[in-house]
Design a protein around this nucleic acid. Sequence first.
DNA 1: TTGTACGCGTTATCAA
DNA 2: TTGATAACGCGTACAA
Lengths: 336, 336
Amino acid sequence: MSLTIKDIAKMAGVSITSVSRVLNNKTEGISESTRQRVLKIIEQHNYRPNAIARSMITKNTKTIGLIIPDIRNPFFSDLARGIEDVASESKYSILLCNTDSTLGKIIDYLWLLKEKNVDGMIFACSDPTLNREVHTFVKQNNIPVVIVDRGLEDQMYSGVFIDNEKAAYMATKHLLELSHTRIGCISGPSFIKNSNERLEGYFKAHQEFGVPTDKSLIRVGEYVMEGGYQAAKELLEQTDVTALFAFNDLMAFGVYQAAEELGLKIPDDISVVGFDNLKYNLLLHPKLTTMEQPIYEIGEVATKLLLEQIEEGKSDQIKSVFLDTKLIVRESTKKR
Amino acid sequence: MSLTIKDIAKMAGVSITSVSRVLNNKTEGISESTRQRVLKIIEQHNYRPNAIARSMITKNTKTIGLIIPDIRNPFFSDLARGIEDVASESKYSILLCNTDSTLGKIIDYLWLLKEKNVDGMIFACSDPTLNREVHTFVKQNNIPVVIVDRGLEDQMYSGVFIDNEKAAYMATKHLLELSHTRIGCISGPSFIKNSNERLEGYFKAHQEFGVPTDKSLIRVGEYVMEGGYQAAKELLEQTDVTALFAFNDLMAFGVYQAAEELGLKIPDDISVVGFDNLKYNLLLHPKLTTMEQPIYEIGEVATKLLLEQIEEGKSDQIKSVFLDTKLIVRESTKKR
DNA sequence: TTGTACGCGTTATCAA
DNA sequence: TTGATAACGCGTACAA
């Protein structure tokens, strides 16, 4: 087995208390000479304290749970990296939890994270308040939580967000300004709050331009490529849309595939706007016009928020941070 | 605070030993009636044992460390998902460690994972034996490790691999059969073993076809888009290549960008072959011919191997699993 | 079948 | 400045 604090104490000829003091950089209660002596032994033997045992006392594990639908989704892997970078700076590590947005898996992970005594969680699977079970769990166990990307209901949790309504409004406006009046909309599942918020923006822009909206032009996809493909195919075949606004880039990718399959040229036959500005949409031809959001940064800020909550015990203070989005006009949109 | 085993024992009017027996499904030493009584209390109060405290005794944490360069790389996020899926089936969870292939970060994480008593690690940052420091660390601490994607030196570790040489041979052969004789090669860093193995395959195919190789046609990229872009730009500007073999799809993406920038048409002016068959290369036009490897499955198998090692204490048995690759011919290659 | 008591490797308390 | 010793929440040997 590994060395323990006891071994070090014995080797240094001091008590374990003294070793502990050195380990935790306590200035009081230890002389410089013994500190040096202990330090030397520690270095010599490359001793590191057992984090598990330490956790038992300190009640913190320096670990945070990351609950997301699927790490394969580039949005979430980008987010995860932002989170990990900030977390590891403060010596925290990340427990990865893929839920596929399944309530069962979410609940299972919630329990797991609790059993493992994580210090906090970053939650990107819909707003906890939208689900009673999740919400009561978190509140009952008093676990620091920051929500990200999806959420913000009644300000019950701290979180990092974008102004989804405004962003969607800007994107739709862009299409309206290009004289499109039949704008198809590929939304995300309605249990994800940002879908509805973006829908609001879509409506608002139409209203402002005096262009009537048509419910039949609105479809729902799963926020993945296949979802976008399916919805786009329906819209392109069954309606007279001249433009398509997909609520994320992944679905916009699907739109490209559907358009290609139907022999429709982008942007000549159909204009397309996405949302996120994923790195890999550089691969698309023509290049995708999209609403950029600072995914990596969202992860960074969320983690800072969470660490504040954890380390300063501010779990009762709700703090919402809004980051900016930006319309990136490229080649997939064109005047009608 | 949360309930403890003590609380449950008190409420059920039994000793903590009895509760423990129920928790661990021990059949001996407990009557069915007390079991039911305890179970009822546990359910009523939604009690779950503290995993940390349990770890102190059992010496396992049901946690495995995943050490990869960058989760944003679709290869690794796919891999991670395969790992997580198998791990979570056995109630293991994943600690995510991004190293950017930096030795410093790798070492830091190694220590961290040790301090946190992970039960094992999956390592995808070059072969540990290639780095003395990493290797001695792992061996000294006797941590179960499975390597993946990059490695296999002297069979010192269990691992899941593909036959890189053969795969690269097949890919190169494909180009040679299309009458290409000036085949540029965009390899990965030489400290990553698979780069060298693939290079071997590249050479072997040339030899077999009696086509001379030319060192000036071989460049090294960082296994990311920018790396491929840079290398491709040089090769396309400075040499007379008619085909390019990128050692992963990410770099092939870069090749597409370079080709476009230089006004070269794929496959008319230049044929391109990639490696991996990432999902998002469906976005490319023309569609990329590539050597598919079963990334998700590699993650699954690696985890199974690791769990075997952990649970059956087979950490001395070295087991290498090789999975198949498959050339996917699409539209980016053409007869010269 | 049941329960007491010890130990896991730390940190924290308090007396010396 | 030091160091015994009691926690932390659990599993388990051993005694009852």
